[in-house]
C-alpha cells in the first residue's frame, strides 16, 4: 500500500522516534528505485540536529550500478544487499535477471567499507546445493570488509506461484549453512 510522503513528513516522524533509535534503514520494494528521494532524505537527516546521530542504511537487491553507488558514497553509512544465487542461470531463473550487477555492487561496497550486511536466501534443493554453497563461500573469501552475513531460511508462507510448492528450510539448517559459509 503505497502512500505519498514528503521529506518533512518523514523528518517529523523521525524526530519523535529518534531518542529510541540508533539508525534509519530504507527498504522497499526496492528503495534505490527512489534514489533521488533517498539521497535528499539522508542529507536532511545528517543536517538535522536531533537526527544527525542516526546511521543511514539502504536495504537493496543490489541492482544499482556502481556508478550510482559511487556518486552517493559519502551520503550513506552502509547497505544490506540480497544475494539470491551465485550461478548466473539459477539467478536468472529465480529473479528474471542475471547476477552480475549484484556481484559488482557487493564488491564495490566491500571495497569502500559500505557493506553492512550480506544476505543469502537458502531455498532447499534450489540454492542450498553443494555447488552454490561452495561458490558463495569462495566469493565471500574475496571480501575484506567487516560485514554481517545473514542466511535467511526460505519460507513458503509469504510467496506466490510456483514457490509455494517449495519446501521450507529449517532454521537449524540456515545456521549450519552460515557456519559453513564463514568457515575458511
Amino acid at each position: 500500500m503505497a502512500q505519498d510522503m514528503s521529506i518533512d513528513d518523514l523528518l517529523q516522524q523521525m524526530t519523535t522516534a529518534a531518542p529510541f533509535l540508533t539508525g534509519v534503514t530504507v527498504s522497499g520494494g526496492e528503495s534505490t528505485m527512489q534514489l533521488k528521494f533517498v539521497r535528499q532524505l539522508f542529507a536532511a537527516i545528517k543536517a538535522h540536529p536531533q537526527l544527525s546521530h542516526l546511521t543511514c542504511l539502504i536495504d537493496s537487491n543490489g541492482y544499482l550500478s556502481t556508478n550510482s553507488w559511487r556518486a552517493m558514497l559519502d551520503e550513506f553509512d552502509g547497505a544490506m544487499i540480497d544475494l539470491k544465487a551465485m550461478n548466473n542461470e539459477l539467478h536468472q531463473w529465480l529473479t528474471g535477471k542475471g547476477n552480475q550487477r549484484v556481484l559488482d555492487t557487493i564488491r564495490f561496497l566491500d571495497q569502500h567499507n559500505k557493506l553492512t550486511e550480506l544476505r543469502f536466501l537458502a531455498i532447499p534443493e534450489i540454492t542450498d546445493t553443494p555447488e552454490e554453497l561452495s561458490a558463495i563461500q569462495s566469493f565471500i573469501k574475496e571480501l575484506r570488509s567487516d560485514f554481517t552475513l545473514k542466511v535467511n531460511a526460505f519460507s513458503n508462507k509469504a510467496v506466490k506461484g510456483e514457490a509455494r510448492q517449495w519446501s521450507n528450510l529449517p532454521t537449524e539448517r540456515a545456521q549450519d549453512i552460515k557456519e559453513l559459509l564463514i568457515s575458511s
Binding site: D9, Q12, Q13, M14, T15, T16, A17
Partner: peptide, 8 residues
Amino acid sequence: ENIVWGSD
C-alpha cells in the same frame, strides 16, 4: 511499520 510515530 503501520504506526505513524509523529501523530502525537
